[in-house]
């Protein structure tokens, strides 16, 4: 098993763990972390493919995605904190106000 194949397996594992966590866990912060995990799994596969193709665009793109992900989480965490202050719980099932 060569290195790039290994890395792709790792990225698949990261993504799957994140997805599974997102679906089964109800804690909002954990769900956010799982989403980050998924994003990084995808990022890993992106650099792996870029390296295999011999181009640097993939690496550049990953750095851009890191920045976007960092700003996204910087907004998401304060929103979660505000929600928690309101309801004093991190359970995602408590926030169903938009349900029709």
């Amino acid at each position: 098993m060569d290195r790039s194949q290994f890395l792709l397996w790792v990225s698949l594992a990261l993504f799957s763990i994140g997805l599974l966590g997102l679906i089964v866990r109800r804690n909002l912060l954990v769900m956010l972390m799982c989403m980050e995990l998924m994003l990084n799994g995808v990022n890993l596969s992106l650099v792996t493919f870029a390296q295999r193709g011999g181009s640097v665009e993939g690496a550049v793109l990953v750095f851009l995605i890191f920045i976007v992900a960092a700003s996204e989480i910087a907004i998401a965490i304060p929103i979660v904190l505000l929600l928690v202050r309101d309801r004093l719980t991190l359970d995602a099932g408590a926030y169903t106000d938009l349900k029709g």
């Binding site: 997805l19 997102l22 679906i23 089964v24 995602a92 099932g93 169903t96 349900k99 029709g100």
Partner: peptide
Amino acid sequence: FGALQAGSLHRYALYAV
């Protein structure tokens, strides 16, 4: 269709998958 949108974030994620 309304039953699909039950307000559960986890279920939405599952649908997406």
